[in-house]
């Protein structure tokens, strides 16, 4: 059995890192022991077997793949850098004044939204461009047709159609009138509540909305949907009055509740 220190000495000698004294000592040990000599020879042989093999040329595709990977990486970093710069800019300029300004702006925005579109809608407002879409999608009960009343007088022509689902009544008003015409829809606000009013997107007539009264202050050559929620007893009605420029008046009434038995 060869001592570990001798094994290390042999290894180091084969690696060429022994001192002259160590080399001489190993020579003496090899001469005195056949086992050490054999071990030395076997390791020497191993070192020869493990001689560096010839270098292999890398595949030609290697370098293009590396450079391609680099370009992709730079693109990703460029994208990330823009976000980082934006974040850094915000943090660099962020202080209590900007924070307070931002909060104040947000509060003003919320207030403006509440005033324009919130609970103050029932008061008299002038809306030059009321646009929107009523989505009557999958109502609890299918809509049933109500009345259809035609309007024909002078330059004013059109119709009023109603349809009902539960306590909801949708009034569709189509009207073609001459310039200077004023149309009014009057209803009993204690019996019905106007839930939504939706002129078509093309309409630009000024509309005045008050509790129990919707007034269109110009010619109305378009279609408008008005949705009412009926909560009162009896048979509430919607009264249409159209006054043209010459003072001629057309009036029609339509029931806002379905006929009995429906």
């Amino acid at each position: 059995m060869i001592d570990d220190k001798i094994i290390e000495l042999i290894n180091r000698d084969l690696d060429g890192v022994t001192s002259r004294e160590e080399h001489l000592r190993l020579g003496a040990l090899r001469a005195s022991s056949e086992e050490i000599e054999r071990f030395y020879d076997s390791l020497l042989g191993l070192s020869r077997v493990l001689a560096p093999p010839e270098l292999v040329d890398p595949p030609q595709a290697l370098k293009p793949a590396i450079m391609r990977g680099l370009v992709n990486r730079q693109r990703r970093h460029a994208h990330g850098a823009v976000l980082e710069q934006a974040r850094a800019f915000v943090w660099r300029h962020w202080n209590w004044q900007t924070g307070a300004g931002f909060a104040a702006g947000l509060a003003v925005g919320i207030l403006a939204f509440a005033v324009l579109l919130g609970p103050f809608r029932d008061s008299a407002t002038r809306e030059n461009d009321v646009v929107g879409t009523i989505l009557l999608h999958s109502p609890a009960e299918p809509f049933k047709e109500g009345e259809t009343i035609g309007i024909t007088r002078g330059d004013t022509q059109g119709e009023i159609k109603t349809s009902f689902s539960g306590n909801m009544c949708v009034v569709r008003l189509s009207l073609h009138s001459s310039p200077g015409t004023r149309s009014e829809l009057l209803y009993d606000a204690s019996a019905v509540r106007m839930s939504a009013l939706c002129p078509s997107e093309r309409s630009s007539s000024p509309i005045e909305v008050q509790s129990g009264r919707i007034a269109i202050n110009a010619d109305f050559n378009d279609t408008m949907l008005v949705v009412f929620a009926v909560h009162g007893a009896g048979k509430p009605a919607l009264h249409l009055r159209v006054t043209d420029a010459g003072g001629d008046v057309v009036e029609r009434s339509v029931a806002l509740a379905p006929p009995k038995g429906e």
């Binding site: 270098l55 292999v56 595949p59 290697l62």
Partner: peptide, 22 residues
């Protein structure tokens, strides 16, 4: 590239893997 590829090749003993690693 030659040195890195050969190092990987000797460690992995597989040319495709060595290329990926390089």
């Amino acid at each position: 590239q030659k040195a890195v590829f050969n190092l990987a090749l000797r460690m992995l003993q597989d040319a495709d893997d060595a290329e990926d690693v390089a």
